[in-house]
Design a binder for these strands. Structure first.
Lengths: 186, 186
DNA sequence: GGACGTGGCTAATGGCATTAGCTTACCGGC
DNA sequence: GCCGGTAAGCTAATGCCATTAGCCACGTCC
């Protein structure tokens, strides 16, 4: 009866399904164990605890976003790349709002690594604007803040009004690009 | 023994203290009851349940932000007002990161009302740019997304690098303002 | 064929939210 | 100054969840 049906990866797969169906709050070890057809304590053979599972789930999700953002940016540069990156990011959020809402900030290595990968993609995308290191970091932070802010709000359903969200997001993209062009000479 | 020491408002006060000290995860009815010197079930005489308490706490926090943003904007307009609004918002987050992280999106009327008030302040701030209704809504959403994104990330400690956050935020302010000026003719 | 490690199990603990039902202090009218 | 009602507290009980301890079967490798 001890066939290796489970593994940390398989558990994360199931956890993602649980999140997709019930939102971030539904992510409990009990629920995942249920989905795995296993008793809750069994999961501890593969993950340290719920906090670690959340971190692993977050790492997976951030990795997915990084994959899609990275792909979107391929073969493009400057404004075109920024637009593609931002569009791909939000596309992910629309496709999997529950996953996006399940992301937690964690010092767990795999989570941090996925975050770093995403950050690298953003920085590389900004390279075309010819910024020096420190300027590129500030710009990447702003890009990240803008995209993430919109994404969180949309994933949480915080935009109540009926106005078209596509249009709002187009404006945000426009703002970011405009800001990247006009020199920071403030 | 039944002196009216408690009330929903007083409970929210205590809950804020709990959040300040232990972060959003520390906000439990047990903890608040402990702070009030009362048994946990007693709280149910004043709030419906934990979800409602969270919503009320969120309403209070959003209200505080709205107060400060509103005050910051007084007597200013256009770029100056946007700068002041954004600066005040982040100042709040720096002062009370735990509170900011404790905000939950909720359909609860008081939460929604506080959010609407904040949105009104943003829209009014943007009025100086001469946008029609729908354009103002899109712009307000972008402003909100940018500020909120930066705020969440900072409150969660997601900015790892040592680069100065002030400078990053200045750039974000700059981006938003630049985006508000260059026409949306995309 | 037997020792061992891996991955599962059951049982037990403790924290938490929540409900039910009881009790008592205050507040009004008399 | 007494009397009933209500508001606000309490204790007890339930149930869910995470987590730990300790047990057992399977498969692997010598």
């Amino acid at each position: 009866m001890a066939r290796a049906a489970l593994s940390a990866d398989a558990i994360v797969d199931l956890a993602l399904r649980v999140v997709d169906e019930g939102g971030p709050a539904a992510l409990t070890l009990s629920a995942v164990a249920g989905a795995a057809g296993v008793a809750p304590p069994s999961l501890y053979k593969h993950v340290r605890n719920l906090a670690e599972l959340r971190a692993l789930v977050s790492a997976r999700i951030i990795g997915e976003i990084a994959d899609q953002a990275g792909e979107a940016v391929l073969g493009r540069s400057a404004d075109d790349a920024v637009r593609a990156l931002m569009t791909a990011w939000r596309a992910y959020v629309r496709r999997c709002p529950n996953r996006y809402a399940a992301i937690v900030q964690s010092p767990e290595p795999r989570t941090a690594e996925a975050g770093a990968r995403l950050l690298t993609i953003m920085s590389a995308t900004l390279r075309a604007y010819g910024m020096e290191d420190s300027a590129a970091i500030h710009a990447a932070r702003c890009l990240r803040a803008a995209v993430h802010g919109f994404a969180v709000l949309e994933a949480e359903g915080a935009f109540g009004l009926p106005e078209d969200l596509e249009e709002s997001y187009d404006l945000l993209i426009h703002m970011v690009i405009a800001g990247l062009h006009t020199p920071p000479g403030r």
